[in-house]
Design a protein around this nucleic acid. Structure first.
Length: 749
RNA sequence: UGGGGUGUCGCCAAGUGGUAAGGCACUAGUUUUUGGUACUGGUAUUCGGGGGUUCGAGUCCCUCCACCCCAUCCA
């Protein structure tokens, strides 16, 4: 588990520490309208994981507010996904539909407060009235209805007295809000549809934005974690809770970036299209990124969870490389599963000097997997090897069987090719070979050196099995539709040959087929009469990669040309200010520019300047420090005054404090509004410039870091900053950095 | 001149103004009866671009650029 916390856990910890939150309560709130995919797994891992890490709990809640789309079969899929991943939800599964009565009451309350109204505009007009992203909307004429009228109408809506779409309940917020979600959002719509749980009780159903925050509140959720696309919805989330006065212990929403993986699709809509379009064989098709698909393919819950953990949680949209997922499943299975031999594309070998047959006891696990268990490998004069483990005209770095190169049959003997038999069209159909009697595995006295050991099966004892090979579902990294499907995503091998112990003894359900990959006994189609194995993932394999590498087109990346946009021209007044600042006050143009363009800043600057004649230093402080504070508030809200800033500049100019300390003092001024000189005095921040004192400290630091001194002397000059930093740290930032710098440079020479 | 987000290696992702973590991928070597695993090394003089502040900037300020989300009676 990684030491470093993700940003969500950082927030949660801060909330616990500040006392804002007593118990951490999260929830995984899917809408039961589709099968969960690995993106849901990430959300499950986050929500249940955080609850577990902070001794809280996590609810599984079906967000079932839209009766036209939802169904019980999806509820079951969701539940089993969470269980399969190994998490437990608190008490019973929750349903938003169970809260319908309370949510309805909250709606009434909002109406009574005059904060919600029944609108009777037709759908297209509502859309039209909403305005656009760049233009304000306008309010419906129905917004003026009286509270009584609204109450009566809403009651009738609930009672089913109106048709679908005839009326709608909306919040009364702001039709010209820059955030479009706030333009009188819809709260309730009429739906004469039977709900899969609530039945026919309701004719009105709450919208997501109204139901979700209230459901969180009702369940006592502390951290409502969702994906980035809900960032705009956070304002309504807060509006509803605040307007209803639901302040104590209320939930807060936090957003993270959803998971994307290349060569696949991750939206329920696209997944549904594939399933319904027959491009895949159901929701649990092993090529799908659904939990059911991964489960059927043979992925373990541990590997999925490890993957979710490894990709991290952040806010940047990203697309994770499938190889990261593949690493996780290999990493999980490698130390766990038995090694077994299976030939997918058989080439017959006849051992001309071998008679009879035998059974060779062989461990299921390689030397580096500390597990017990073995089976008997039948051996006779007829065996199968993999077709591409023989080459008649091999390249130099080919390690397997050739007419000139012997090879070991893993766990058995070394064989040498004697004759290559071909059919009329030149295909190799059989090899006649000799085995070395003295080369038996474990008691090899033959002295023959081979470059590799290949897998094989006894032709007579092997069992025919079906093996399903999966490749990426799409052939492009960011697929857009069925046109991007990979035509070869599924290869079915009907007649692969596997050693008998796998079928007869069933030592496990997941195996490593030696030298090929990890495979899983298909939980649906496998029968003893017709065993079926799914390929989970291939082994890493550096040989195959070398072969195919030459084919991959080298990426030619055109250097992105950075186009600079046009800077907005200054107004006449701004230009005049700019000229004054650069010409009269000798400010550099960047600082002058910033000041001149910001009327608040320039006003602040001018006022402070009237108290101290140090235009450049003052301008620097104002543009760089004061500007930050002014981004969040008006001048009138600042705790510090212009004259205090002048005082600050004064003690910087006269050398009382360094620039570094000035930042610290400024931060204190922002918080307390105290005079800078008082802060300096209270905290003893006067800078130390005495070279004698500073040299002593430098000596200490050097004594503590002999390695770095050495590194520095051998040329790593980046370390100068390290030493300066250390010295400053040990003086609490008070050492005069310029003196420190000079001294360190001299002393390290 | 709508608003809200995000830009650190090929892909993810850490990073209180003081030596640019880690994983995947890639690569070289050691071990190996899996071209696997394990182990050891190599992989960002630089953080979207340009300026500024500072002794010192991925971190602070200004500005430009790119990408994502928002105008379902979906969630």
């Amino acid at each position: 588990m990684s030491e470093r916390k993700d940003f969500l856990r950082t927030i949660v910890e801060a909330d616990i520490k500040s006392g804002k939150v007593k118990e951490v309560v999260t929830r995984f709130p899917p809408e039961p309208n589709g099968f969960p995919h690995i993106g849901h797994a990430k959300s499950i891992a986050i929500n249940f994981g955080i609850a577990r890490d902070y001794n809280g709990h996590c609810n599984l809640r079906m967000d079932d507010t839209n009766p036209t789309k939802e169904d019980t079969k999806y509820v079951e899929a969701l539940k089993s996904a969470v269980e399969w991943l190994g998490f437990e939800w608190k008490d019973d599964v929750c349903y938003t539909s169970d809260y319908f009565p309370r949510i309805y009451d909250y709606a009434i309350e909002l109406i009574k407060m005059g904060k919600a109204y029944v609108d009777s505009l037709p759908e297209d007009e509502i859309r039209e009235y909403r305005g656009t992203v760049k233009e304000a909307g306008k309010r419906s004429k129905y917004a003026d209805r009286t509270i009584e009228e609204n109450l009566e109408l809403f009651e009738k809506m609930k009672n089913g007295e109106f048709k679908d779409g005839e009326h709608i309940l909306r919040a009364k917020i702001d039709m010209s809000a820059a955030n479009m979600k706030l333009r009188d959002p819809l709260l309730y719509r009429i739906r004469h549809v039977e709900h899969f749980r609530a039945g026919k009780t309701w004719a009105v159903y709450p919208m997501y934005d109204f139901a979700h925050c209230l459901s969180d509140y009702i369940e006592g959720v502390s951290h409502s974690i969702c994906t980035l696309e809900f960032e705009n919805n956070r304002d309504i989330y807060n509006w509803v809770l605040e307007t209803l006065g639901l302040t104590p212990e209320r939930p807060y929403q936090h957003e993270f970036a959803r998971l994307g993986i290349n060569y696949t699709v991750m939206s329920k809509r696209k997944l549904l299209e594939l399933v319904e379009g027959g491009q895949v064989d159901g929701w649990d098709d092993p090529r799908l990124p659904t939990i059911a698909g991964y489960k059927r393919r043979g992925y373990t819950p541990e590997s999925i969870l490890a993957f979710c953990d490894s990709v991290g949680i952040a806010k940047a949209n990203s697309m994770v490389d499938v190889s990261q997922l593949e690493f996780c499943i290999r990493d999980d299975l490698n130390p766990k599963v038995p090694r077994v031999m299976c030939v997918l594309d058989p080439l017959k070998i006849t051992l001309v000097n071998y008679e009879g047959n035998e059974e060779i006891e062989t461990s299921y696990y390689p030397h580096d997997v500390p597990k017990e268990g073995s089976r008997k490998l039948p051996f006779s004069n007829e065996i199968y090897i993999e077709r591409d483990d023989f080459m008649q005209n091999p390249p130099k770095d080919y390690f397997r069987l050739t007419p000139e190169q012997s090879v070991r049959l893993k766990g058995a003997y070394i064989i040498t090719c004697k004759e290559v038999i071909k059919d009329t069209s030149g295909n190799v159909i059989e090899i006649k070979a000799e085995y070395s009697k003295e080369s038996k595995s474990g008691s090899d006295t033959s002295g023959i050196k081979v470059k590799s050991a290949i897998h094989w099966v006894d032709a007579n004892a092997a069992i025919k099995v079906e093996v399903r090979l999966y490749d990426r579902l799409f052939s492009v990294e960011a697929p857009e539709g069925v046109a991007d499907l990979n035509a070869n995503s599924l290869t079915v091998i009907k007649d692969a040959y596997i050693e008998p112990a796998v079928i007869n003894e069933k030592p496990d359900e997941r195996f490593q087929f030696e030298r090929q990959g990890y495979f899983y006994a298909d939980p649906v189609d496998y029968t003893d009469a017709k065993p079926v194995f799914n390929k989970i993932v291939g082994l890493k394999g550096s040989w195959d990669k070398k072969k195919t590498k030459t084919e991959t087109v080298p990426k030619i990346r055109a250097k992105k040309e950075q186009v600079d946009g046009e800077v907005v021209a200054m107004s006449d007044a701004q230009t005049a200010l700019f000229t004054k600042y650069t010409q009269e006050l000798k400010l550099n143009s960047e600082v002058a520019n910033t000041l001149a363009r910001d009327s608040q800043l320039s006003a602040f600057y001018e006022e402070a300047l009237s108290e101290i004649n140090s235009p450049v230093s003052l301008a620097n402080i104002v543009t760089n420090e004061v500007a930050r504070e002014l981004k969040q508030m008006q001048i009138s809200e600042l705790k510090f005054s212009t004259s205090q800033i002048s005082q600050l500049v004064k003690i910087i100019d006269d050398g009382t404090i360094s620039n570094k300390i000035a930042k610290q003092v400024f931060q204190e001024m922002v918080k307390s509004g105290d005079n800078p000189s008082k802060i300096v005095e209270d905290k003893g921040l006067v800078q130390i410039s005495d070279p004698a004192i500073i040299s002593a400290i430098i000596n200490e630091v050097m004594a503590k870091n002999p390695d770095n001194v050495e590194k520095f002397k051998t040329g790593n000059t980046k370390l100068l900053g390290f030493f300066v930093g250390q010295v400053l740290k040990s003086t609490g930032g008070k050492a005069n950095p310029q003196v420190v710098n000079k001294l360190v440079a001299e002393m390290l020479k």
